[in-house]
C-alpha cells in the first residue's frame, strides 16, 4: 500500500454542482464503497469547503491527519495522509480548505498537487467538491477526467447546476483560447446583460469568429469535447426521472454539449436512517431502493473507458 512513482494516470472523478444538501457527499461515499467492493482501489477526497464531513458518511471519526500535513511538509509523501477505512480498497483524504487554497495558488503549485494526487496508488479517485462555483472548485472540476453533477429535481437545484455548468463551460473555453481579445469576449459573455449582445454560446462563437476564425473553431471543438455527467438524486416519480433527460436535451440545445445522464437515486427513508446511524447505506441496507440505484451507477462508472 502506498505511493508509487509510476506515471500511470488515475481516473479522477469530481462530484460537484447543484446546491448544498443535494446529496453529493452521500453519493460520493456510497459510490466509493461500491466501487471498492468491485476490487477497484478507490481514494475519496473530501474537498467540500462548506461542510467537509465525508468521514461521517463513512462512519469514521474526524481524521487527525489531513492534506495540510503534506502541504506544510510534515510528511514527505501524499500517501502518508491517506486514512484507511473499514472497507478494503477504500481510503480517505481530507483537508478541503488546504486543497482548495492550493488550487487558488499559482498554477505551478496547482499542477504539482494534481500530479501528486494522480500519482497516488489507486485505480480511481472521487473528489467531493461540495457546493459553490469558486474558481478553485471550477478548476478542479475541469482538471478531472470526469465531472459529475448531482442535482435534485427542484428549481433551485437545477438553477444552481446550470449556473455551475455555465461558469465551468466559459472558464474552460477561456482557458483554451490564447488570444487576449477573445478571452475578453468570453469573460464578457458570462454576463447575460453584456453590451455585445451575446446571449448564448452560439452568439459567442459568432462574436469570436469576427475576431479570429481559428479561435472560433477551437471553441467549437472544446464545447464538443466537454462532456460532464449528471446524477439525479431524491427522485420521487417517473416524471422526476425524466427531468434528467430534459436537462440533457436543454444542455444540448443551449451549450451544444453532450451531458451524460449517469442515473438517478430514488428518495428513500433508508438514506436518512443510514446517515443518522453513521453507517453507509450500501453497507447498512444494500437491498434498499436507493442503494440499488447507487449500485447501478457504480457499474456504469466502473465500466467507463
Amino acid at each position: 500500500m502506498g505511493w508509487t512513482q509510476s506515471n500511470n494516470r488515475k481516473m479522477i472523478w469530481t462530484i460537484g454542482g447543484g446546491k448544498g444538501g443535494s446529496g453529493k457527499s452521500f453519493i460520493t461515499a456510497n459510490l466509493g464503497i461500491c466501487l471498492s467492493r468491485l476490487g477497484i482501489r478507490v481514494i475519496l477526497i473530501d474537498a467540500d469547503l462548506g461542510g467537509a464531513n465525508l468521514h461521517t458518511f463513512l462512519g469514521i471519526s474526524p481524521p487527525a491527519i489531513t492534506l495540510a500535513d503534506f502541504i506544510k511538509r510534515r510528511v514527505s509523501h501524499l500517501h502518508e495522509v491517506l486514512i484507511p477505512t473499514t472497507v478494503p480498497n477504500l481510503q480517505l483524504l481530507t483537508g478541503a480548505q488546504d486543497l482548495l487554497n492550493a488550487m487558488d495558488a499559482k498554477s505551478v503549485q496547482k499542477r504539482k498537487l494534481v500530479r501528486s494526487i494522480q500519482h497516488l496508488e489507486s485505480d480511481m479517485i472521487l473528489v467531493d467538491l461540495g457546493a459553490g462555483n469558486s474558481v478553485s472548485v471550477l478548476d478542479f472540476f475541469l482538471m478531472s477526467d470526469g465531472g459529475i453533477l448531482i442535482v435534485t429535481p427542484e428549481p433551485t437545484s437545477v438553477e444552481n447546476t446550470y449556473r455551475f455548468l455555465k461558469s465551468a463551460f466559459y472558464r474552460r473555453l477561456r482557458q483554451m483560447v490564447s488570444s487576449p481579445s477573445v478571452k475578453a469576449v468570453i469573460e464578457g459573455a458570462m454576463d447575460r446583460k453584456n453590451e455585445m449582445g451575446i446571449q448564448n454560446p452560439y452568439d459567442l462563437i459568432k462574436a469570436v469568429r469576427r475576431i479570429d476564425q481559428t479561435e472560433a473553431d477551437r471553441i467549437i471543438e472544446e464545447a464538443e469535447a466537454f462532456r460532464p455527467n449528471l446524477i439525479l438524486n431524491q427522485v420521487r416519480s417517473k416524471k422526476d426521472i425524466e427531468i434528467g433527460f430534459s436537462i440533457r436535451s436543454a444542455c444540448l440545445k443551449y451549450f451544444g454539449i453532450h451531458l451524460h445522464y449517469l442515473g438517478y437515486v430514488v428518495y428513500d427513508q433508508d438514506v436518512s436512517n443510514s446517515i443518522r446511524r453513521r453507517r453507509p447505506l450500501v453497507l447498512e441496507n444494500a437491498r434498499s431502493r436507493a442503494a440499488q440505484c447507487i449500485m447501478e451507477i457504480t457499474s456504469k462508472l466502473a465500466n467507463r473507458p
Binding site: P153, E154, P155, V158, E159, Y162, Q199, N200, E242, I243, F245, S246, I247, S249, A250, K253, Y254
Partner: peptide, 26 residues
C-alpha cells in the same frame, strides 16, 4: 413528445437557461 415536455414553457429544465423568446423559437 420528449421535446414538447422538455421545452414546455414551465419546464423545470428550461426556464432558467433560455429566455422566453428562445423557448418559443425552439
Amino acid at each position: 413528445e420528449h421535446a414538447k415536455e422538455t421545452f414546455h414553457a414551465d419546464s423545470l429544465a428550461v426556464y432558467s437557461l433560455f429566455s422566453e423568446e428562445e423557448v418559443k423559437e425552439i
